[in-house]
């Protein structure tokens, strides 16, 4: 019989183990989410990340080894972004009739996200490098990293802040918007996508297809807007 160590050394070198673990952890997270009556705090990403983080820590596996397997899932982020075109096109008549609300909400949401984040971080004594790192945190990761880099921030730390912002948005959007008694799926989705990019958009799709389509639009438009206005806002701090 082969030694456990031999089997483990094989598995830990192959992508299969961590690809399986990623899908299994998400399946568990999704099952918890459904069992909890789709409560936003029981976020499947948050559960999967906690499970996998604990597993990596317990087995002493470096992130690079984990990513060998997880990269196949990670890769699909690009095609999934392109796939957002379909719900966008299906909702084209709705978008056309909501052009002005979309533009107004984009400007208001984007500015609020950047200015309040910078003001609070500044109050806690953040330096200019950290502010540049934080400024693009509401945009989708590849854009945020590019903006952070060009402003003199730390791209790695920006990626961390982007993910934390996404999970925060996905968890708080539903209770917050219910509290405000807003029932317009367009407004709910668009604001969530603008403030918390793809993770917020994923949450919006779980709630309502129209919210999902508008969230995808908000994410895409805010990526472009933040690239344009972040340098200007940062110069005010």
């Amino acid at each position: 019989m082969t030694d456990f160590i031999d089997i483990w050394s094989y598995l830990s070198r192959e992508p299969l183990l961590w690809l399986t673990a990623t899908l299994a952890a998400y399946a568990i997270g999704d099952a918890c989410f459904r069992a909890a009556n789709r409560m936003p705090l029981v976020n499947p990403v948050l559960i999967a990340v906690t499970l996998l983080g604990t597993l990596l820590w317990a087995t002493g596996t470096p992130y690079a080894d984990y990513f060998e397997g997880a990269q196949f899932v990670h890769f699909l982020l690009g095609p999934a972004t392109v796939a957002l075109a379909v719900p966008l096109a299906l909702n084209l008549p709705r978008l056309k009739s909501a052009l002005l609300p979309v533009i107004a909400a984009l400007l208001a949401g984007s500015l609020t996200a950047i200015v309040t984040a910078l003001a609070i971080a500044r109050a806690f004594g953040a330096d200019q490098v950290l502010l540049a790192t934080l400024a693009p945190k509401s945009t989708t990761a590849p854009v945020a990293i590019g903006i952070s880099d060009s402003l003199g921030g730390s791209p790695t730390l920006t990626a961390v802040l982007v993910i934390l912002t996404g999970i925060t948005g996905a968890v708080i959007a539903t209770p917050l918007l219910n509290l405000l008694r807003l029932t317009d799926w367009r407004a709910r989705g668009f604001a969530t996508g603008t403030a918390s990019h793809g993770i917020g958009t994923a949450r919006a799709f779980q709630v309502h297809p129209v919210a999902g389509a508008f969230a995808g639009l908000g994410m895409a438009l805010n990526a472009i807007l933040t690239a344009l206005i972040a340098p200007w806002i940062l110069s005010l701090f």
Binding site: A105, G109, T165, L180, T192
Partner: peptide
């Protein structure tokens, strides 16, 4: 400080964005 900045700014951006959308 960063955790607070993310929590408050994300909540504020979602609330302001959605309220402005509905108002306009």
């Amino acid at each position: 400080g960063l955790a607070l900045a993310i929590l408050i700014s994300t909540a504020a951006a979602i609330a302001v964005g959605a309220l402005i959308f509905v108002a306009v």
